[in-house]
Design a protein around this nucleic acid. Sequence first.
DNA 1: ACAACGCCCTGAGGGC
DNA 2: TGCCCTCAGGGCGTTG
Length: 313
Amino acid sequence: MPELPEVEVVRRGLERWAAGREITDVEVLHPRAVRRHAAGGADFAARLRGHRFGTARRRGKYLWLPLDPGFCVLAHLGMSGQLLIQPGDAPDEKHLRIRITFEDAAAGELRFVDQRTFGGLSLHPEIPALHPGQQPPADGSAETLPDVIAHIARDPLDPAFDEAAFHDALRRRRSTIKRALLDQSLISGVGNIYADEALWRAGLHYERPTASLTRRRTVELLGHVRDVMNAALAVGGTSFDSLYVDVNGESGYFDRSLDAYGREDEPCRRCGTLMRRRPWMNRSSYFCPRCQPAPRTRRAVTAPPGTGRERQT
DNA sequence: ACAACGCCCTGAGGGC
DNA sequence: TGCCCTCAGGGCGTTG
């Protein structure tokens, strides 16, 4: 389940193995893999042929390969997507969706493999990525990103991530902390695994109201988000079911050091209390009931419409 | 405008 | 053996 660290590992692989290479052909083997490319697979292929990839970039869980000035190939791995560099004579993977071959064929081909087809590739114009109120420099040197992900917030490893703005957004929200961590328009790159890990480290219950966090708590939480992501990056990302492998097919092994996710009925590594799992948004939340006590104001946030905004003062 | 939910998809695993 | 159910879950479109 690729989150930011896994996607960054893939980005680094693409930086090493795809940058500067000229595309000779593109084979789209499943239409869902290019569903975000409105003009369809044939158009996608035709517009890549003869062009050259630049250096792969990333924002949150999205990554993209610049493709001549102003355009790029955007990739999202979804739940089970992989980008692999494979020898041309390697047998096709069972769930091979897209094959990209290069002029220097001996250096291998790029394959998009995706069992559950939540991921995909698409072609988009790039637009300037601006800070609020910033004007693009006249010399065209502005940082750019694909137009369709302009709503994706910067991720917490981005030096330009704005902690104060994030905290202000949390205070304005009438929601709970885990929902906010997973909202890619507030902070990107965090998925279910790293949300649970960071909340465990921070000692925060997943249903803690966002508006109840002090600036200090927000800063602490962001520190834990960064720590757990950096720890995962250091070992090449998380892997659970071998669906995730990096660009060269190597699995990460961060899952061995998870403290919360998937640890139902196992002792908390801090206090020994048995960890719990709770159904949450059609998925699960793992937490320690002692280190992460439920907020006493929880009922107010989950109250049905018409019962008022009890939390407001 | 904001918050939350449903859907897309496949394969593993459990129950019978 | 095989069938059916549940689970995994990111992001977007729809609903409230």
